[in-house]
């Protein structure tokens, strides 16, 4: 399959899943009625369900999927490692810490945007800390700095839970951390979208650099790639995309790991071409999973992150198995 054709196929897939996501839900209504309510409006609860509940949920699904898929592809390309994912540099863990602090302190209850803003703050602090720690060293120092920040964030999150005086707050935190797109509104869309757009734009610029990094850091540097600038763009782009995704959807793992891995053979393993395809693939995967959580256990609020990990972990096993066979 040629690259343009692959893009068309993935776009059509995302469009189809977008429609499916709009039409699947607890309210049992016909397709025609749903679409009429979505586009035509009218009286009764259905237009509100379609426009205020399902539409933002679906749009968020696309946004979160694009962010995670694109970031995963960029990270794997930059680190030249198929096991890398956005979580490697600690962005999701520190965004989660910010959100958890907002939930625990009661800040989240004060105004609707408090939680996402706290999560974004966590992600921003993570970036500063990573760049400070990793300095101008190579990719290894970036990974190590990411692991250190990630461990610290997880420990602080555990500490907040540990010292939580209120079991209900602890419960709320645990459920939030599982990751979900349920009960989101357009407020979440408008909060996350500007940040994500900045992140996507930054990551779109990494293509030339990560393609040349196929030949190693020294060869890439002598082919006109400014590695320091590339790293800054990459870390900034991943932080904005994944930070915003975590802020509105909680921690959703494996998308950034699995999607580039599955699509890599279809783009001839070229890191730059994997960016757009993984963005679309990520959107398709998150939409699929979000439809699945509504169909598998309707009414039980199965969490998106839980389902994703259940599907993603076996793929991860498969990856390790194949790597073992190669070496």
């Amino acid at each position: 399959m040629t690259y343009p054709r692959l893009i068309v196929v993935l776009t059509l897939l995302v469009a189809g899943l977008f429609m499916a996501s709009l039409l699947v839900g607890v309210a049992d209504v016909s397709v025609m009625d749903s679409l009429a309510a979505l586009f035509g409006g009218g009286e009764g609860p259905l237009p509100i369900v379609m426009r205020e509940i399902r539409l933002p949920r679906t749009i968020l699904g696309v946004m979160v999927g694009v962010s995670l898929g694109l970031s995963g592809a960029a990270m794997q390309g930059y680190l030249r490692n198929p096991l890398a994912e956005p979580g490697v540099i600690g962005i999701s863990a520190s965004a989660a810490l910010g959100a958890v602090i907002a939930l625990q302190s009661g800040l989240a209850a004060l105004f609707a945007l408090a939680l996402p803003l706290a999560a974004l703050t966590g992600a921003a602090l993570c970036v500063l800390l990573i760049l400070l720690l990793a300095g101008s060293g190579g990719t290894l120092s970036l990974i190590l700095a990411g692991i250190a920040v990630s461990a610290l964030s997880s420990a602080l999150t555990a500490l907040v839970l540990n010292l939580s005086p209120n079991p209900f707050a602890a419960n709320e935190i645990v459920f939030w951390m599982m990751g979900s797109l349920a009960d989101r509104s357009f407020l979440h869309v408008w909060t996350a979208l500007p940040v994500m757009l900045v992140g996507w734009a930054l990551l779109a610029f990494t293509g030339r650099g990560i393609d040349r990094l196929t030949l190693g850091e020294e060869a890439a540097a002598t082919m006109g790639i400014n590695l320091k600038r590339l790293r800054l763009i990459l870390v900034g782009g991943v932080a904005a995309s994944v930070g915003a995704a975590t802020a509105v959807a909680g921690a959703v793992g494996f998308v950034g790991l699995v999607v580039p891995h599955v699509l890599r053979p279809l783009v001839g393993a070229r890191p730059a071409r994997l960016l757009l395809t993984s963005a679309l693939g990520g959107a398709a995967l998150v939409l699929t999973a979000d439809i699945a959580v509504r169909l598998i256990l309707p009414g039980r609020d199965l969490k998106l992150g839980v389902l994703m990990a259940l599907v993603g972990a076996p793929v991860f096993f498969h990856l390790i198995w194949r790597m073992r066979g190669r070496s």
């Binding site: 060869a219 540097a221 002598t222 070229r270």
Partner: peptide, 25 residues
Amino acid sequence: SAQRAKAVAWLPQAREIAWPVRVAH
């Protein structure tokens, strides 16, 4: 780095090919 890329090509000792891309690419 852009000027240097036009002035000199460098073949490092470490032979790195990170991904299974085509030779021509």
